[in-house]
Amino acid sequence: MANNIQTAHRATAVPMKLNEAGSIAVSGPKRVTGGTPDDSNRVILELDAVDVFYGDFHAVDSVTIPIREKEITALIGPSGCGKSSVLRSINRMNDLIDTARVEGSIRYHGVDLYGPTVDPVEVRRRIGMVFQKPNPFPKSIYENVSFGPKIAKYGGNMDDLVEESLRRAALWDEVKDKLEQSAYALSGGQQQRLCIARAIATSPDVVLMDEPASSLDPIATLRIEELMFDLKQQYTIVIVTHNMQQAARVSDRTAFFSVDVSGGQRTGHLVEFSKTTELFTNPRESQTEDYITGRFG
């Protein structure tokens, strides 16, 4: 079928890795693709008619997306359509912007994240974030990973946790001999993987990624995509990307946003939310088709 062309078989460079139980598992060639998800996974996050405002500016209008457990959900769309705004509203990062306001409801396991008794700090411990530009702390590699668990009063062995997080982020072999060195001495791709290790060190449920590979070369990009695919076994991932091929390769479902100009305001809205295979082979909306085939403007 048509989507066979979209999917690609790729062999991983790492033949062996520690699995969850600590035993050695040999991983064969791996297929980096979203595949066709069935609908059996639970909806873990429900964005229900979410609006985002910055002061008087209506940035995003009524977005409804169910996000399922252990799936990768991709948000795509033209610049300024509000992908980051929606993503940041999921773990209440928008609270940090004075003017930002979120309406509608975002339910996490059925609990409204914007409810009056919800502590945003606790939300962010469960819903971690990886940013567009690698932003390690100006500290050692070790401290970068251990900071999150430390403030969360992690009781276990910190060295083990740091190692495990770095291994999961496919960075351990490259940094194991220089954990005390500055994180800034790493390359951009390594820094981004460090940021992923940092995000998963606190064992979040959901990891939000805002264009995590936008500043990386194809090899580093591939590693991060493979990593996402691995992480999917345990985490729920929401990723914003401008790279259509990346969305097609890694995600299970894709949300396409667009932006309408009305009354001088550019307001973003959701155009289509479908399984990735459907969206990229047979989008329902002509707007989606125009965007993904590059026929815009």
Binding site: Q6, F280, T281, N282, E289, T293
Partner: peptide, 9 residues
Amino acid sequence: QQPVASDLR
């Protein structure tokens, strides 16, 4: 061109 959607079909 890495076509998608109707182009790919």
